[in-house]
Simulated scan of single mutants.
Amino acid sequence: MQRPLAATVLTAVVLSLAACTTPPDADTRAPTAPRGVTAQSGSATSVHVMWSASADDRGIAAYEVHQQGRKVKEVPATTLMTDVEALAPGTPYAFTVLARDAAGNRSPHSASVPVTTLAAQAEDRTAPTRPTHLNGKATGPRTVTLAWRPAKDDTAVTAYDVYQADTRIHTVSGTATRATVTTLRPGTIYTFTVRARDAAENSSPDSTPLDLTTPGGRIPTSTAPTNLTATAERGAVKLTWAPPKADGAPIKEHQLHLNGRLATTIVWGATPPAGRATYTFTVQDPPGTRYSVKLRARLPDGTWGAFSAQRSVVTR
């Protein structure tokens, strides 16, 4: 029986449409699998997982951490580490990491990395001592190296946590006294501190802060306020700093950023004070509240300069 012409034409149209359902510029290529995955137990109930960045023709959107085939964490593409918590003490685990792009393509899993959580400890409420003599240097526009002297603990220090602007960005084992921090921005002033941690998750006080500046960047770091201090007073925080030098012209305006957000603009209507500047602001939060502060100045040409190093303060 001969097939009707109309049916033949309709079939050809459907096949043609089906062949065009995938746009020619669609992203169908999966990222590469993450490499260099490590897993380290810093306590009886947590594991710190780190990895190296994957590659993709259009960019990574996120990373997924899997524990024996089950996704347990997801982090954005700019993050190359995470902590997996609420684990059982003294228990073996295995972790893999995969990358995902904006089109939803997933990379193969990384190599599986085994780790065993630390054994549960008797009740321990004693925190380690603070790490001392924190020092370091920028080794490139996006990398710094840090070193410190070890802390002490009544049981044992199981991990050192590196903080940048009050955010934990890196963890190394309790026997390490060095760390390399990557994925930084060129031409930026960073403030680092280190805390020691034991198996009961007790953390030491912060080390003395260390300010480091990465080379490069579009805004010269010489335009940043320097020597910023933040002192807690009853119901207030007092700031002092040295304004940047702008070819001898006075700096009449600064922005105060509190916990990463613009809080207020400090303006001197007349001639600014000579030497160090001082500003005190009141706080409404209860004693024991932690604040992070940083400043930047409006330069004589009307543009904003680089940010100062960040300081943390706990209210009284």
Rank of each mutant, 00 (worst) to 15 (best):
D153C: 07
P250D: 04
A199H: 12
G217R: 02
G269S: 14
L15M: 13
A88R: 11
A6Q: 15
A127E: 13
S107C: 10
A7H: 12
D301M: 01
T143A: 13
L87M: 10
S54T: 11
T188N: 02
V157I: 09
G42K: 07
A6G: 12
V113M: 02
R70S: 13
L5F: 14
T145M: 07
A224Y: 07
A224D: 02
T45I: 09
T282M: 01
R149I: 02
N259Q: 08
Q40H: 12
G187A: 07
P4W: 14
T280N: 03
S16L: 13
A55P: 00
G42L: 09
S16R: 05
S203R: 15
T240Y: 06
I251R: 07
A55V: 13
T223M: 06
T265P: 00
R142T: 15
Q2P: 14
S203V: 14
A165C: 01
A77I: 15
V267A: 03
G260F: 06
D27W: 12
T132G: 11
L239A: 08
T315W: 04
D56G: 05
A119L: 12
P220D: 04
G269E: 12
S312P: 00
T132C: 01
A138T: 08
V37W: 09
P89E: 06
Q255A: 14
P286S: 02
H66I: 09
T96H: 04
L87T: 05
V283L: 06
V9W: 05
V181S: 03
V314K: 07
P209F: 13
S173D: 15
R142F: 08
T282K: 13
Y160S: 04
P141T: 12
V65D: 09
A7Q: 15
T271D: 12
V113N: 04
V172C: 01
P205W: 06
P205K: 09
G216V: 11
P243T: 09
G288R: 03
A88N: 05
R218P: 01
T116D: 03
R125P: 02
M81V: 11
L212W: 05
V283I: 13
A179E: 04
T180Y: 07
S52E: 15
P186M: 09
D154K: 15
E85W: 07
N259H: 02
G174L: 10
M1W: 12
L299Y: 00
V162P: 01
Q310L: 10
H257P: 00
D124I: 05
S41C: 03
A111M: 04
T264R: 11
R316Y: 09
A224S: 07
P250A: 01
R3Y: 13
D206R: 11
T278G: 08
A86Y: 05
A196I: 08
S222W: 04
G187E: 07
L80D: 02
P24N: 14
